[in-house]
Write a protein that binds this DNA or RNA. Structure first.
Lengths: 199, 199
DNA sequence: CCATCGTCTATTGTTAACAACCTGCAGTCG
DNA sequence: CGACTGCAGGTTGTTAACAATAGACGATGG
């Protein structure tokens, strides 16, 4: 259970969750001092989190002007990004192929479990976060660390727009199918389930 | 000429250039204090630059352990990244189509000119930087700002490995052809030249 | 009346001191 | 002999004070 060790990471996670949950309207200006006092920390880690989230695509940064919440991409871009994302995940899964190591599988199982908790709790922001974390864990388990940063860039912009989670229990079931395919080492089924899940 | 206004940006640009020029071996550990004293600034902006370059894919960051220079991706990943990059640039150019505004065209021309200078000076790191900047300017001119961050992620990892610049004068000529197609508003030729250039 | 300049305030950028943390090594105990 | 514990040194993480900047507002002069 990788608890965030540094304050910077805690602030980053918390702020990302708030942005993902839609707590701020797109275009809203975020102030360092305000968030620092709300989190009970100094401006330093908040600045670091701003830079990080700006690089991840959640916030837009302008020198001496602060950061604003990004607008979600339009439908054309969303469709294209989905297409790229499918290619990346397929490529990584195929590159090193199955099966993954027992250790890696355990990490994926753990990520799936966190997703289940988030779904049960009906926490939309947490579901988004755990959904992405689940896929990221798979990519890392397959040796795709070279592509994870770019993949994350694409996904984070998408997450700003995601609203397709009608029934959160289904979200968990969909990912559980992906996990089972991974567990059983069946490449064809895994690819099939992944493509069904990424949309 | 957008001179970097903040120290953070100057440090980031300088450090990125040094990494691109191969001044550090992959895996080398970079120390905040060392670089801070070399640049004559405090550790703050250096830390910011580390975070930024880590997010861009040039450095690897580990909490409480510092940053190391990334290893270039293997050939399989390079080929796949090139494939993605082609799709992205094609998509953006097609999305809003030609022609681009006079103002945007002027910015592309300026980027091409900087590339020419770098080629003439035989400065490999500058050529890499200006090459990427040229393409980025085109993407922005075509309204692809939503995809630029992910595109940049992919390209930066590639730039770590690039060694295909035998004759730098050819590099400029290739890009000049892209620019002329853009200028004349010929979409088919532009796509053709872009595909020839991205490899 | 309008444009321009200067001041004022809020906010970000930078710095240096201090705290927390990892690592390696020596010493100690089983 | 091997593993464990506790220092010691160095590096990163955090903080708060200080500096620099952008934008707003009003005074001034044409």
């Amino acid at each position: 259970m990788p608890i965030s060790r540094t304050i910077r990471e805690q602030v980053t996670v918390q702020l990302r969750d708030e942005v993902l949950s839609g707590a701020f309207a797109p275009g809203k200006v975020l102030r360092e001092a305000e968030l620092a006092s709300r989190f009970g920390v100094s401006r330093g880690p908040v600045r670091d989190a701003f830079l990080q989230l700006a690089n991840e695509g959640y916030l837009a940064y302008e020198p001496n002007r602060g950061v604003t919440v990004q607008h979600p991409p339009d439908q054309s871009d969303r469709e294209f990004i989905t297409k790229l994302r499918r290619q990346i995940e397929l490529y990584v899964v195929r590159k090193f192929g199955l099966p993954v190591s027992a250790d890696a599988l355990e990490q994926v199982r753990s990520a799936l479990d966190e997703l289940r908790v988030a779904c049960t709790a009906n926490n939309l922001a947490a579901v988004k976060r755990c959904d992405l974390a689940f896929h990221e864990t798979i990519l890392l388990a397959c040796g795709g660390e070279n592509l994870v940063p770019a993949w994350k860039q694409l996904c984070s912009r998408m997450a700003l727009a995601y609203e397709r989670f009608d029934v959160l229990a289904d979200v968990h079931e969909e990912h559980a199918r992906v996990f089972r395919a991974l567990e059983e080492g069946d490449g064809a089924v895994l690819e099939e389930e992944l493509m069904q899940n990424i949309r």
